[in-house]
């Protein structure tokens, strides 16, 4: 029996590493396929040359417009998909942990609605005034103001309880979504710009977006890895976590900020992409483990794989006309129903 325990621990470790390796390979394969895919046919060797040329400056003979397609269009879009997928998945892990609810997701607290509100404001302002105010910035501001409100409303004498957070999230979120509806009404004929933005899309993402999303996602992953055990213990409930020496209010606040920052950045860059943040951690908890030290990196990779896959499918189907957010929800929703009912039965 005793040897069994060490054996099980070793076996689990091998399982985590194997899953991690498989997902990494999968991600690389889809990324390469994504680079090759598109209206302009460019060979794999040329693609490699173009990337090496940009990074280390080797001489190449490829046409300049091909280089532009790879370097300025396809590569940033793919990287953006990866980092946004990672960010949303990690944020899902975090919110499920701190809200002590495996069905929470990055949008539960209304951060995304705040970002949508900010973005809608910027879009209509730009249309009406003719002055350009960056949508991304406005969305970020909207998200952070929402976060501050959620924190202020849910704080009570003893700290932040998960039910308080969820309730204040719902309140703020519904106020803001009627705000968004109001702006849509004001926009009149131009409503499609807002609708399209909110639906979530990765088309036309450039290096600016990558440089915004990538560092935030990576930093948040590293940071939450350090605090992973606390997140494990939070699932035991506040009183027990407290008796184990975890300051539940402080931990919840720290993770709330980390999770919200990633969500804010992801939503600001590419709109509301649904279901990645719910499905990825939920499925991995079910299939692999709930232990956050393993769950966080595996979720990050799985999130990247799923979003990149979904985005590649939209590119095949429609040359990027269908917003990826619609696809993830269309496929993710029914899939989730299947998993959920299946789980209940077993």
């Amino acid at each position: 029996m005793r040897n069994d325990i060490s054996g099980i621990i070793k076996l689990n470790k091998i399982k985590y590493i194997a899953v991690f390796a498989i997902l990494t390979i999968l991600l690389a394969l889809i990324a390469v396929a994504g680079l090759c895919m598109g209206a302009m046919e460019i060979e794999l060797g040329d693609i490699l040359d173009i990337i090496l040329n940009k990074i280390v400056g080797i001489e190449i003979t490829v046409k300049e417009n091909a280089a532009a397609v790879i370097w300025d269009i396809r590569l940033p879009r793919i990287l953006c998909a990866c980092f946004v997928g990672m960010g949303l998945a990690i944020s899902g892990v975090i919110f499920q942990g701190i809200l002590q609810n495996p069905l929470a997701d990055p949008y539960t607290l209304g951060i995304s609605t705040g970002a949508s509100f900010g973005a809608s404001l910027a879009i209509i302002f730009n249309l009406i005034s003719g002055i350009y105010f960056p949508t991304v910035l406005s969305a970020l501001i909207g998200a952070f103001i929402t976060l501050i409100f959620v924190i202020l409303i849910s704080k009570n004498g003893t700290g932040f309880e998960s039910s308080n957070l969820i309730i204040s999230g719902i309140i703020i979120s519904s106020i803001l979504s009627s705000g968004v509806s109001f702006i849509k009404m004001l926009a009149g004929e131009n409503v499609s710009a807002i609708v399209f933005w909110i639906m979530g899309s990765l088309s036309a993402k450039g290096w600016n977006d990558v440089f915004l999303v990538a560092p935030v996602s990576v930093a948040c992953i590293i940071f939450s890895m350090f605090l992973a055990r606390r997140l494990d213990i939070m699932t035991l409930g506040d009183s027990t976590a407290d008796s184990l020496g975890v300051d539940t209010s402080k931990t919840r606040l720290i993770f709330l900020i980390i999770g919200s920052v990633i969500t804010a950045v992801c939503v600001s860059v590419c709109g509301v992409i649904g279901f990645i943040g719910l499905i990825v951690p939920h499925l991995l908890r079910f299939w692999i483990t709930s232990k956050n030290r393993a769950l966080i990196p595996i979720s990050a990779l799985f999130g990247a794989v799923l979003l990149l896959l979904a985005d590649s499918i939209t590119r095949i189907l429609s040359n990027g006309e269908i917003p990826v957010g619609v696809l993830t929800t269309l496929i993710g929703g029914p899939f989730f129903i299947f998993v959920f009912t299946h789980r209940e039965r077993s």
Partner: peptide, 25 residues
């Protein structure tokens, strides 16, 4: 240490992992 009344556990840890959490302090 404090042990509270039984509660509804929503996350899927195995028993060894739950007991190991006791070593956290």
């Amino acid at each position: 240490a404090v042990l509270y009344q039984n509660f509804d556990y929503k996350f899927m840890f195995n028993c060894f992992e739950v007991v190991s959490m006791g070593l956290y302090p």
